[in-house]
Design a protein around this nucleic acid. Sequence first.
DNA 1: CGTGTGATTGAAATGCTTCAATTATCGTGG
DNA 2: CCACGATAATTGAAGCATTTCAATCACACG
Lengths: 256, 256
Amino acid sequence: MTRLNESVPASLTKARLPEIRARSFDCERDQLSPIENLLSRKQQSKLQAIATILDYQRGNSTIFSESEDAHFVYSVISGIVRISRHSEGGRRQVLAFMLPGDLFGLPDAGIYANTAETVCPASLYRVPWRQLRETMLSEPELQLNLLIRLAFDLRQAQRRIMILGQQNTLQKLASFLLDFVQYTDFYDVRNHRLTLPLTRFDLGDYLGIAPETVARAFAKLELAGLVRRNSPRHIEIPDVAALRQVVAGGRRQQRP
Amino acid sequence: MTRLNESVPASLTKARLPEIRARSFDCERDQLSPIENLLSRKQQSKLQAIATILDYQRGNSTIFSESEDAHFVYSVISGIVRISRHSEGGRRQVLAFMLPGDLFGLPDAGIYANTAETVCPASLYRVPWRQLRETMLSEPELQLNLLIRLAFDLRQAQRRIMILGQQNTLQKLASFLLDFVQYTDFYDVRNHRLTLPLTRFDLGDYLGIAPETVARAFAKLELAGLVRRNSPRHIEIPDVAALRQVVAGGRRQQRP
DNA sequence: CGTGTGATTGAAATGCTTCAATTATCGTGG
DNA sequence: CCACGATAATTGAAGCATTTCAATCACACG
């Protein structure tokens, strides 16, 4: 079962190509906030000239697996991609969810260090690493933008370290929800409704807690009136600012 | 109190300059293993031409603080630098310990995202970011090496996420010790003696656990015959392979 | 030689995981 | 479109791990 089974490479002659974006140096720090386009039109077209569009029709499709030979780098156009790695014991840790505009799949010694799978239907740019490498060498400005992008990803990873290192379950879940609220693809600001294409397993493996604990944390937040579960994957968040208060508190839960 | 108070910039005319190193694509993955020098002589000298050497005589000196304007990038020549960030509650999380050959201080929107402090006496290269940026644009190969370096740092951060997300106290401590054992600066292979210039507070903030818990974990490892505390900062590790077994086990402690 | 900081250990409280059972949800095929 | 089955989600209860508070001990440095 190769990873191309479920993908339908689309033509590059589409009228309006989605943008390949790099994060700006000037974006809000420590936020998954809307991203700016740092690439010039010329750089965009350079990238798109060597890119292929892949459409994954369903969730849980493998894009690539850890320890495979790495030939391509990817960028999310729409949907969500789950980046994960397995420990020796076989336990899965979700390292990140890649959202529209994100870049992933950089090779490590010619090999993928992580596994990438779709969480829901998704479309991606696929860029051959070899060509990207050559383009970067001939276009230093483009390369610098990718370097800045990578620096941003590093800070995101550091943010996750902060969260995993010093937040309790309730705060972890709140942090996660606050991240997703930034994306209008998933959060309807008017109705305060968040659509999570993730299971409690995904969430647990992302936050470093058991899926049961995730469910319990949702229950607690609901009891406190901070969220409302219309269904497991449709969450209403009436007051985002109140959720932020949960994160701001100490490690232990505040006494009433 | 500026950060230059304790530093003594040395002359650049030293006979043999320590190398500024970049990690190789081909180095062992997920290991703080000895690193290869990826930069050519020409690239080395380009960097060293714009670098200053700083010598910090003592530990706990601040190199830079989070939210300061960022003008320099640093590389460790000798010693250890602690990279940390504080949460809203003021709690400190140590994101990484920078060891000889490591690079740190990349600006985020012109500002340092983290705090960098010496853990013990240390000497560093200091490179003006503005000049480094220009050099990268005129030397794409050099830039690519720095990009690869950054990719390595990202994978290191991901490794920390794995550890924080799914290891218990004993495993976290064991993982940490195994990392440090790789560095001959701190581990004497002949006597199996590890010298840790870190306090239990540093360690706790790094592993996301209370310092008391660190002490207890050391006690457990000692009881199991896996380490021996000659003094709090002088640890004997008779059998490194046995320590690895601790990490390999499940999250819960194995029954006897 | 004293003092302050770091390290260790004890004991109680709390939070998280695990196992187990039940209920809800979603995708699929009839 | 509905019913079904598989999978996900929820909740309960017990056990264990970690934190916290507190007290003591060790050590380095002036």
